[in-house]
Every structure is written in structure tokens, then in C-alpha cells.
Design a protein around this nucleic acid. Sequence first.
DNA 1: CTTGCTATTGCAAAAGGATGCGATAGCGAA
DNA 2: TTCGCTATCGCATCCTTTTGCAATAGCAAG
Lengths: 153, 153
Amino acid sequence: MSHTRHDYAAEMRRRGFRVTPQRQIILDAICEAGGHTTADEIYNRVQAKSSAINRATVYRTLDFLCEMRLVVAAHVGSGPMVYELAGEEPHHHLICRTCGHTESIGHDIVQQWFAQVEQATSFTVDMDHLVLFGLCEQCRRSAADPTQETSSK
Amino acid sequence: MSHTRHDYAAEMRRRGFRVTPQRQIILDAICEAGGHTTADEIYNRVQAKSSAINRATVYRTLDFLCEMRLVVAAHVGSGPMVYELAGEEPHHHLICRTCGHTESIGHDIVQQWFAQVEQATSFTVDMDHLVLFGLCEQCRRSAADPTQETSSK
DNA sequence: CTTGCTATTGCAAAAGGATGCGATAGCGAA
DNA sequence: TTCGCTATCGCATCCTTTTGCAATAGCAAG
């Protein structure tokens, strides 16, 4: 896969933060994971490269990278927080609260709505990884269709 | 829709769950809190009434009430999860990632967008307590306006 | 009212995540 | 290159939330 299209190191330095091997290794680990990863998976990946890196450092670095907006974090249904590289195309998820099915939704429709919100409230919404819960088409039909629900009333 | 002082007890029973004093006390505690409350605050409130109720029960009940959709949960910036009674008018929050300022946004604009999403994707988004991060008007201006960007000592 | 089924609780312990503090090491200046 | 400041790290510990299991107690049927 092609390399960093973003000079993270320079960006960090420019904003007065330090570029440490730990941060680079952790960022690499997130990158290699390729998608949603948990802190634990990241820690394991990091350990393989440099076993001296502490768990706390992973958590703190994850926090730091989120604040830098190089990484996005999200609760995706049950289980622990998941992390993902930002900087790619922003995208968003729809998660079915019944069957857990996850699908994606493009940035454009979300972005347009953010613009509407800004017009209405003067608040600039600025999320590049929104997670929305609801019902997928199948579960909505099952829920609406009382084929085996003895609703007496 | 007229707001309903839900008969949650009957609702629970109808759905095959039990109505226990713990659940009623915990629900009361959330109700009394009046707004966003943490699990810890709820636990303390509950303790005042019935000191035999365990922390785990509070967490499990909170989960249960969320699944029943009598309560909504959300991460609001830093700190622990916050809970709130559902059943009132659904509402949503805009939180400034710079200054932490929180403001509300009505359900209508959100609902309309959910309808758009449903048209586009056949997925029925169904959230009554969305939390959106971004920049409030003031912080956006400060960020865009480099009047004091040289923060070098 | 009594009985039985099983959902729910309390307890204890663990998983996931955050934090205070002394030691270490980036990185800009000399 | 060396020096000094202080951001960051590792460690230990704590906080928040989840989970397994045996005991308890709703609630509906008899």
C-alpha cells in the first residue's frame, strides 16, 4: 500500500508536540490494521515491534492522536472502543440495533446536513466518523410485521 | 405525540421482564436527577434510599433500561457515560471540541435528515439522543482568525 | 395461598481504560 | 555538538464497567 500521504511528523512538530518512536510505532500499527481496531489489538501489534511500550502509552497516544485528528475513535455497538486512521475519505456507519448489521454511508449526505445544522445554529459540526443506530431494512420489516406477535388489544 | 408518563411497569411485564424494586428505585433516581447523570451519581442517589443495591445492579439496570428505550445513554465529551430519561421530547447535543460548550438542537431538523438517510439507504435511523462534535461559533472564529497564533512564550 | 419456573440480584473478580509521579529523551538554542 | 527545558514515557495504581455464579424473589398457574 502506498505510503503516508500526510506528513504526520511535521504536523506534530509544527503544533509543538514531539515525534517519538512510540507515537510512530502506534500510528503504524493502526495503519497496518487497515480498519477498525481495538486498543488491545493495537497494543499487541505494537508489542511485536517494541515490547517495551506500555499499555498506558498506547491509551494516551490514542487519545493524543484523536485530539490531533489523525485518528478517529468510535463505539461500534458492543465491545470496546475501535480506532481507525483518519485522513482517508471520511465515512460513517449505520448499525442495526437488532441484528448488529453494519453498513456505510458516504460523506456527502452527512456533510450537507452538517451545513444545514450550521446555518440553523451557527455551530460547525465537524465529525468525520459518525455512527448512527437504527434498524436495517430487514429488521424494520420484521418489527413492523406482526406475523408471529400475538398482540391482543 | 403527547408525552406519556409511561406505565413502564406494565410495559416491562408485557415484554416478559420483571418489575423489581431495584429497577423502580434506579429509574426514580434517574428521573430525580433531571438531566445528564453519571452511573456514579445514580448509584449514590440509589444508595440513599436502599443501601443494599449493588453497583453491578445499577450498571445492569442502566443497560436494561437503555434496551427498553426508557433511558438514553451518551458519551458527552470527556468523563464517564451519562444517562437521561427518555420519553421526554427527544433532543440532541452539539459539543464544542475546543471549549467544551454544550448546546441543544431540536429533534425536527435531525428527524428530517434521518428521513433523507432512510430514503437514500433504506436504513431507518432511530436515535433520540445524538451527540455531535465540532466548533461553536466563538471557537470557530478564534481558530480561523490568526490574531494571536504566535503562542511562543 | 402455595408452588415452580426462571429472571434478576449480590458478590467477587476481571476487563477496559485513565492518571499521578519520577525518570527519560525530543528538539530548539547556543 | 552540547545543554536545558519540558513533553512524554513507564510503572503502579485507581476508576469505571462487565461478567460468572449461586442465591433470591417476581409472577403466573394451580
